[in-house]
Design a protein around this nucleic acid. Structure first.
Length: 436
DNA sequence: TCTGGGGTCCTAGGACCC
DNA sequence: TCTGGGGTCCTAGGACCC
């Protein structure tokens, strides 16, 4: 038995917790560069704010309804997420963090000692008390059904109190007959369209479709979804985070780039960040690739996007190797005359520490004391703050940096920002136990 | 003027092997 | 003139998730 716990409008809620003056007002959170709306509270949804829609297209609507917009404040959301997850771990023996605001809890065996719905309500109440966040809880025999139950809990918060136990088969079929296939976890735009054309419209119809038919016309992924909807668990509990297979660092620029020097700085910075993430995972990589692209929305200019990859003979974790490989890639794909909108660095083909085999023909023998140097760099940047020590290639002015014009203070993670808040009385009780 | 970032998994097709 | 069968590995692209 699985329970899916999901925070309601997570980013927007994180912002409003610390601003009691915003109670009852529509609030949204924007993506990087203040590009798209990525979260909105219930009030904002009622105003007709379009999730995922670009901010600039909705500015008039925002002005009309008095919608408050925030830039993404990832330090704050990560810290609040941590509080939610640790609270869940206190209540449930096994927790799988699925995303920043969601977790699967292992509810198997619970039914022998207590009511599933009661435990769900206890989770809601405890999280509200500790973090001032409201959550939805969905319980069922499989992850996909638990997701569906959670979906129902959010759709009817009044009637359900935010908790839906979907372990009963009749109840499952009733709910599945109501939801269209597009609402099912794992079914996106393309597949729901194709299913619709085949006459499979409700989730119940999908659950009753022959798996051989699904396998023939789709993939094993959808077959698993169908089986899960029938109560056959195909997606197991993943308590321990698997090691990453690739690392990406990419960003849109605050303004379009035309100068090679600026692009070099940006790509160099992304390479450095990607290398830091790689070392945090205790991995070495052999593939380094870079992509650049112009805006796909610009109608006056031809679109240009390209990608290049370098394969090292010997895996590395050294920022210097990764920067130099990234620069070689960039050199191969840069074309003068474009207005670049975005670039990124990708790392892949990972090896664990000590596993990597040196290559007989590699002319670049491993750098002396590379690990120690990287450790020292990471240590200084951790202790003194990000960017204390950086590579000259990253540039100093960094005119390509992204826009974050409506950023809230880092209420829970920065002492200087805490002082800016002024009144600590505004903070929910449990938050006083912040590490600072 | 202004359209996010970071991942995973699967499949098809090509290159190559014996 | 006739040109198999069975397999692996890699990559690009598509689909999905939050």
């Amino acid at each position: 038995m699985f329970a899916l716990v999901d925070v309601n409008s997570f980013y927007a809620s994180c912002e409003t917790i610390f601003r009691p003056d915003l109670k009852g007002r529509p609030v949204v959170v924007l993506s990087n560069n203040d590009g798209c709306v990525v979260a909105c509270n219930a009030e904002a949804k009622r105003c007709g704010v379009k999730m995922g829609g670009p901010y600039f297209k909705q500015k008039d609507l925002f002005r009309y309804h008095g919608v408050i917009a925030f830039s993404s404040n990832y330090e704050l959301y990560a810290d609040m997420s941590h509080r939610v997850m640790t609270t869940l771990e206190e209540i449930c023996p096994r927790v799988e963090k699925y995303s920043i605001d969601e977790a699967f809890c292992d509810f198997s065996g619970v039914r022998h000692c207590r009511n599933l719905e009661d435990l769900g309500r206890e989770i809601c109440a405890t999280l509200l008390l500790r973090t001032h966040l409201t959550v939805g809880v969905g319980v069922a025999q499989t992850k996909t059904l638990a997701k569906l139950a959670n979906h129902a809990a959010k759709k009817w918060p009044q009637q359900t109190g935010g908790v839906v136990d979907l372990s009963n088969i009749e109840k499952q079929r009733k709910l599945m007959a109501y939801f269209p296939v597009s609402e099912v976890w794992g079914i996106g735009r393309r597949i729901s369209k194709k299913l619709d054309a085949m006459g499979i419209k409700t989730t119940l119809q999908l659950a009753d479709t022959d798996t051989r038919f699904i396998r023939k016309h789709f993939s094993v992924v959808l077959e698993r979804t169908v089986r899960e909807l029938r109560g056959e668990s195909c997606l197991g509990f993943e308590e321990f985070v698997p090691t990453k297979q690739e690392i990406i660092c990419s960003r849109s620029f605050g303004e379009r780039l035309t100068e090679y020097e600026h692009m070099r700085q940006a790509v160099c910075s992304y390479a450095v960040r990607a290398a830091e993430k790689l070392r945090a995972e205790h991995q070495y990589c052999r593939h380094i690739s870079v992509f650049v692209k112009t805006s796909p929305f610009c109608v006056n200019e031809p679109y240009y996007g390209n990608q290049a990859m370098v394969k090292l003979l010997t895996p590395t974790q050294d920022s210097r190797d990764i920067i130099s490989a990234a620069m070689r890639c960039l050199c191969a794909i840069w074309r003068d005359g474009h207005h670049y909108q975005k670039a990124g660095v990708m790392l892949g083909d990972f090896f664990s520490q000590g596993v990597a085999q040196l290559n007989l023909f590699d002319e670049n023998s491993p750098r002396l004391n590379s690990e120690a140097l990287m450790q020292a760099m990471d240590g200084i940047n951790k202790k003194r703050g990000k960017g204390t020590l950086y590579f000259a290639g990253q540039g100093i002015q960094q005119p390509w940096q992204m826009k974050r014009e409506m950023l809230s203070p880092r209420y829970t993670t920065r002492f200087s920002d805490l002082l800016m808040v002024g009144s600590l009385a505004n903070m929910p009780g449990e938050l006083h136990h912040s590490k600072h």
